[in-house]
Design a binder for these strands. Sequence first.
DNA 1: CCTACCGATCGGTAGG
DNA 2: CCTACCGATCGGTAGG
Lengths: 211, 211
Amino acid sequence: MSLPDSPSPHTPDAADSPVSRREQIYLVAGRLFSERGYHATSMRDLAAELGIQGGSLYAHISGKEQLLIEIVNRAAAQFDAALFSLRDEALGPQDKLREAMTRHLTVIAENMDSATVFFHEWKHLSAEPLAAVIAWRDGIEAFYRELVREGVQEGVYRADLNVKMAANLVLSSVNWAYTWYRPGGPMSPQDVAVSFERMLLGGLERPEGEA
Amino acid sequence: MSLPDSPSPHTPDAADSPVSRREQIYLVAGRLFSERGYHATSMRDLAAELGIQGGSLYAHISGKEQLLIEIVNRAAAQFDAALFSLRDEALGPQDKLREAMTRHLTVIAENMDSATVFFHEWKHLSAEPLAAVIAWRDGIEAFYRELVREGVQEGVYRADLNVKMAANLVLSSVNWAYTWYRPGGPMSPQDVAVSFERMLLGGLERPEGEA
DNA sequence: CCTACCGATCGGTAGG
DNA sequence: CCTACCGATCGGTAGG
């Protein structure tokens, strides 16, 4: 047994690799940050949840803010991966919007913790990562405005639409989901997207001349 | 000059009554909590902003959580006052919905700080005030569902509407405003409400058979 | 409203 | 991964 002396004496089961331990820390941090908030979660809270001492965390991570940065950046990356690939797909404006909303909601639904941290705690980042998040947000808004503009130009949306406000409305509907959506409930993210999209595109009002 | 010895020697200008000082504390606390978050704002930060020492705050207020409770409760009371009076007004469903959205957005727009604290920091309340906020939220949701149900029953909204999801969509659009609305910008809360309400009721799609 | 102070807890480090 | 510790800061109080 000539293991290098890195894992040290007190390693518990020798089952967890350092990598997965690191991931485990991010996972639990995401949950705690989402439940209690970033500043109300102490490194000792986090360590206790993992069954280790506070100082031991620093063998795996460099500091508390690194946790927040990583969680926020990963969430942003997931939105990007889900949404931006849509740009080149050959879909009509409505299908594209519905698909964007479905993917947007799915990212939130499958990552409720990180999504909550993302929307709630990004303000606590320091200057550089903060600027990155703001740039990300601007990019997403531009993406949705583009989807709306396409629909207007192709004549399928009302010509007098305020593109910015329409994109705003769509974004409101999907972003706010992190406050109420519960995975495992009766509706899948797709169900929510279809429901929202029908109401947004067709309107709540009964069309003239229908029974 | 036989004033009671309460205001103490160091009173600065003798212009501020104890009441307005208290209000001033709530006002600044609202701003700081909204900018930095509840837990990232220290009582010393707050005191410094007011030009006094940390301990001096406790001559006016009982504790940090009282500040949060008060800010949150006042915000809830403003929403209640603005919205629930609408129940008895003789308006058609669409007018009622538009008016509700306008008032809802106006409360947010005129109290951006408290609204932000309200939506962002309520989770940090202790059990009793927390339960009150949750009850409040349920009441507001019920209110909007009622507005939607009225419209369906009177036949002005689509008969196949999912009432819960429709109310959800409306609430998303107005609540999310605290993240993007900027008072003093080009749009009044009323402008936003009218814009959102047109899109929500009439839909984004161009009606069949229109130019 | 201030000075001076309290115990508790914070993020993080040294050395093993 | 632990023990033991660091300086800093927290919310809050006593006494004036």
